Computed example of a mutant assay.
Amino acid sequence: MADTMQFDLVSPERRVASYKATAVRIPGAEGELTAMPLHAPLITTLRPGVLHVEGEKGTEEYIVTGGFAQIGAEGISVLAEESYHRDEMSQEILDRMIDAAAERQRKAVEASHNDPGPVDDAAKLLSDMVAMGNHIGLSSKQPSL
């Protein structure tokens, strides 16, 4: 049985991380899941949250705002809409993320004509962004929902 798997995390701007990992905890849209070596093949969408990666250097944390994770026999590839190592996160970055999510919610409310689907999705996105900030110890501006 393999002890490690290849872990790759990329965003549109850059390769964020690439190394051998023993486990990766993913903030999946349908719930948290942990991928380990020889995990069954799977593709899942991501929700905003913290990706935890266990490797030779201990546990590393990465902030993701959405995207996809592909788990295969060779390892796991995470394609994030936006991603930062936990040490790179700042209040300014979190505020920008939350402002973008709040704007998306505002536009969904305006365009929905009381159709709950898009409004609920946008509210969930905003809620996930605020919870992610709280989880890593940054406070949000607590936009009005």
Rank of each mutant, 00 (worst) to 15 (best):
R25A: 11
I43E: 10
V10G: 02
I98H: 14
E82A: 10
N114D: 01
R104W: 07
V130P: 04
S11A: 04
A29E: 03
S90M: 03
G55C: 08
D115Y: 02
T4L: 07
I63K: 01
K141C: 02
D121E: 15
P116H: 12
L9E: 09
S18V: 10
K124C: 10
S140E: 11
H52V: 10
I63Q: 07
R14Q: 00
G133V: 03
E56T: 13
G55Y: 06
E32A: 08
R106V: 14
V78F: 03
F7N: 09
R104L: 14
L126R: 15
Q70I: 00
S77F: 11
E82L: 08
H85K: 01
R86T: 03
D8W: 04
Q70D: 14
R15V: 08
Y62I: 04
V24D: 09
F68V: 10
P37W: 12
S11T: 05
Y62F: 04
I76E: 10
S127M: 12
M36Y: 08
R15E: 06
M129E: 14
M1K: 05
G58Q: 07
G28I: 06
S77R: 11
G31C: 08
R14D: 01
A131V: 14
K57D: 09
R86D: 02
P27T: 00
V119M: 12
L46G: 03
G31W: 00
P12C: 07
L145F: 15
R47N: 11
H39G: 07
